[in-house]
């Protein structure tokens, strides 16, 4: 899962940073007076900056095309699911939802087919986060009043997927949830 590699990457980087700080700190103890300080600090600073810049640029150019806005943009979805979030429930329907008389239905989507969620909110900002059957967050978008966000995703594994609200929306935020079935 993506999250595991993220945590691992972070822990490695944090360990490297800690070792560097520790090494620098220890080097200030027991200093011989003859060999003081860093040689050619400006040059070293330049290289340090250059390497950092290159690493960050590579990271940016690799990750930006993977942004959710570009995913499945040129495919036709197999299914559209309309989602209206409201305090403190998600209304989901295969048909458009009338904000004055919102009503939903149980949702079933095909496995491996492209699903488009059209997510909006009827009151405040909400989050629309999809958790897979192993309770891992796999994708999300925000539900903002007045706007519709189109979230596209292909579910490979069949099962019950859960939706949690991830944008704080008031006293029952932690109970705001829904689910759908991938077959």
């Amino acid at each position: 899962m993506q999250q595991n590699s993220i945590l691992l990457l972070f822990l490695i980087l944090a360990a490297l940073a800690t070792i560097t700080f520790l090494y620098i700190y220890l080097s200030s103890k027991n200093v011989e007076l003859v060999k003081q300080g860093m040689e050619n600090p400006l040059k070293k600073r330049f290289w340090f900056l250059l390497i950092l810049f290159v690493v960050l640029s590579i990271f940016a150019s690799v990750t930006i095309p993977k942004s959710p806005y570009y995913l499945f943009a040129d495919e036709t979805p197999a299914k559209v699911v309309h989602v209206s979030a409201m305090q403190f429930a998600f209304i989901m329907s295969e048909n458009a939802i009338d904000p004055k008389r919102p009503s939903g239905q149980a949702i079933e989507v095909p496995a491996n087919g492209l699903v488009e969620f059209r997510v909006t909110s009827l009151d405040v900002n909400h989050g629309f986060a999809i958790y897979n059957p192993e309770e891992r967050l796999i994708t999300q978008t925000q539900a903002m009043p007045g706007y519709v966000n189109r979230l596209r995703y292909k579910f490979s594994e069949p099962g019950t997927y859960k939706i949690f609200c991830l944008e704080y929306c008031g006293m029952a935020h932690q109970g705001m949830r829904a689910s759908f079935i991938v077959k």
Partner: peptide
């Protein structure tokens, strides 16, 4: 470092909030 990881859009999808 934690912030830069989260500020990457493709990671933010699974880390946001």
């Amino acid at each position: 470092l934690g912030a830069v990881i989260d500020a990457t859009i493709s990671n933010n999808v699974v880390l946001h909030n």
